[in-house]
């Protein structure tokens, strides 16, 4: 049975990692979550990214959501902002693509070219 008391343990455990995240110099992953994104399957993509971040303990990565960016037919769209690098836009993302994006781009710095908007428009 889950109890509110368990939050106290989480509190103690996460206080340290939070301090690292607070400086906000890390990577930002932004998922489009307007009507178009949600209908195209953005919710499981968002939660898969969250899961991967937790699984690999990526304390300098934050996940955010945004509204419609005007390319609804390409949703779910995921944008990756790494400090000092150009923004990378991934289109038609699904949970398995999201796992690859986190594992290769976020963790190893290798952009998954095949999933980017550039590859889609070719």
């Amino acid at each position: 049975m889950k109890t509110i008391q368990e939050l106290e343990e989480i509190r103690k455990k996460t206080l340290d990692t939070i301090n690292i995240r607070k400086d906000r110099s890390g990577t930002r992953i932004v998922v489009g979550m307007a009507t178009c994104g949600i209908a195209a399957g953005a919710r499981p993509v968002l939660l898969t990214i969250m899961d991967e971040i937790k699984k690999h303990d990526l304390s300098d990565v934050v996940v955010a959501q945004t509204g419609c960016i005007g390319m609804c037919r390409l949703e779910p769209i995921v944008e990756v902002y790494k400090p000092g690098e150009e923004k990378v836009t991934y289109v038609k993302v699904n949970p398995s693509k999201a796992i690859r994006i986190v594992n290769e781009h976020i963790m190893k710095g290798k952009v998954v070219e095949g999933y980017t908007i550039g590859a889609e428009s070719k």
């Binding site: 509110i4 939050l7 989480i10 509190r11 455990k13 206080l15 939070i18 971040i53």
Partner: peptide
């Protein structure tokens, strides 16, 4: 329960 310094968006 969590206090002010912990954000609800924390994965944990």
């Amino acid at each position: 329960a969590l206090g002010n310094d912990i954000n609800l968006g924390e994965p944990e």
